[in-house]
């Protein structure tokens, strides 16, 4: 039977691993996806989720409500800023005439 401290530590490391995985997924998506719009998906969804998981892990580690609240506020600010910037860049790309990638256009 593991102690409570060990369980909390394992939970924290699990959150770090999940966050690192989503950061890696976002970066691979940015490199591999075919056009601006799909790369926006990889960036603004996957990376922000990875940041949120790392924030949860750090909050578990700190064990303080104030620090956890601050980490939550930072994550919410990144979410709002990321969503706004995503919309702006997508709209600018569309009005500049960047064509969305389709499977048919590749053949």
């Amino acid at each position: 039977m593991p102690s409570l401290e060990l369980t909390v530590r394992a939970l924290e490391y699990a959150f770090y691993a999940a966050g690192a995985f989503f950061f890696l997924a976002g970066s691979v998506g940015l490199v591999r996806f075919p056009d601006v719009y799909t790369r926006l998906h990889a960036l603004t969804k996957s990376d922000n989720l990875g940041l949120g998981l790392v924030c949860v892990g750090l909050a578990v580690r700190s064990g303080s409500a104030i620090i956890a609240l601050k980490l939550l506020v930072i994550w919410l600010l990144v979410l709002v800023a990321g969503a706004t910037a995503c919309y702006l860049v997508a709209e600018a790309a569309r009005s500049a005439g960047v064509k969305p990638w389709t499977r048919e256009a590749q053949r």
Partner: peptide, 25 residues
């Protein structure tokens, strides 16, 4: 396109936040 380069800069913004938080801890 320029938008792709801007996306990479946005990636560095998000990862920079994560790095600063991890280093702070």
């Amino acid at each position: 396109t320029g938008a792709d380069r801007m996306l990479a800069a946005m990636l560095f913004g998000t990862t920079g936040v994560a790095l600063a938080l991890v280093l702070a801890e």
